[in-house]
């Protein structure tokens, strides 16, 4: 009876500790693909902003 209790306790503890190994618990990728960025995706810069930056780059010429 006592052995069964210890065994069930161990199973519960193991289950809880493994549960903390999930990706959602860790908040980071757990499996990596070499050379592939797996973080949050970057928000794109709008074409208008890029064009504005491009014109800004030309303005550096006038000195």
């Amino acid at each position: 009876m006592k052995r069964l209790f210890v065994l069930s306790c161990m199973i519960v503890i193991l289950g809880l500790s493994l549960g903390a190994c999930r990706k959602s618990e860790q908040g980071r990728p757990l499996m990596y693909k070499k050379g592939t960025y797996l973080g949050a995706p970057d928000q794109k810069i709008s074409p208008e902003a890029l064009e504005k930056a491009r014109l800004g780059a030309w303005r550096q010429r006038g000195f």
């Binding site: 980071r28 990728p29 990596y32 693909k33 960025y37 973080g39 949050a40 970057d42 810069i45």
Partner: peptide, 19 residues
């Protein structure tokens, strides 16, 4: 080793501090 650095479409090298 954790692929935290990446290239954007504009060729800017950025990284994620979370990774």
């Amino acid at each position: 080793p954790v692929d935290t650095i990446y290239n954007t479409e504009e060729g800017i090298v950025l990284h994620s501090k979370d990774l």
